[in-house]
């Protein structure tokens, strides 16, 4: 059945074919011009300063906030910063961090073991963002290729460095209310001395 709608459609198709062949011509001209320009630019680059460096003989500069190999840092007193709060583990979108809390005899929390499976890690930095103690930090080291995936599993002894990393001053236990060896109740920042419960003063 031929109705008005199909006739109109056929007409539209005729006109659009004409305009299409014209625009095709112009586009070919444009392509030609852009190729000429590209060739010119490539030629000119031969005279510019080189961006490529001779990696691995030469190392690139990477900003401190670069998200590479993860480390566990120490606080300014040289103690392990990680308090085994599990926040990095729960923040990790690929679930590649796992650890176990333990405690020293003075009540200080730290991880009994701490494991990152770097063959799963996507270097998103969410663990670092979640960490309340600045313990876990991503570093500008990305050279972690291995032939065997098992070598990508890092335990605490592989992760723990001796310094403070990017955040030199911070020590969680100086702020926290929990007493640990060397810091009694009332000795943290902004703390009043412990209340004498038997005191009669109002």
């Amino acid at each position: 059945m031929i109705d008005e709608r199909s006739i109109a459609a056929a007409k539209r198709a005729q006109t659009s074919e004409r305009t299409r062949s014209e625009s095709w011509l112009w586009s070919q001209v444009a392509v030609l011009l852009s190729q000429i320009r590209s060739m010119a630019e490539v030629f000119l680059h031969g005279f510019r300063r080189r961006e490529t460096i001779q990696y691995p003989e030469e190392k690139p500069y990477l900003a401190p906030r670069f998200r590479g190999r993860i480390v566990l840092t120490r606080d300014p007193d040289g103690n392990e910063r990680c308090v085994a709060c599990y926040l990095c583990a729960v923040a990790c979108p690929v679930d590649c961090i796992s650890l176990q809390k333990t405690e020293d005899e003075t009540g200080r929390w730290y991880p009994e073991w701490f494991r990152i499976n770097f063959s799963r890690c996507i270097y998103c930095g969410l663990c670092e963002e979640a960490c309340p103690t600045y313990a876990i930090q991503l570093t500008p080291d990305f050279e972690m290729s291995e032939y065997d995936r098992r070598n990508m599993v890092y335990e605490k002894e592989h992760l723990l460095i001796s310094g403070t990393g990017k955040y030199p001053g911070y020590s969680f236990y100086r702020v926290a209310g929990r007493a640990i060896g060397g810091k009694d109740k009332g000795e943290a920042e902004n703390e009043a001395p412990p209340v004498d419960v038997r005191g009669l003063m109002p």
């Binding site: 679930d95 590649c96 961090i97 796992s98 650890l99 494991r115 063959s119 599993v153």
Partner: peptide, 11 residues
């Protein structure tokens, strides 16, 4: 939100 799935057995 169980965590550590890809690390706990990795050793």
């Amino acid at each position: 939100r169980y965590s550590g799935r890809t690390a706990m057995h990795a050793n």
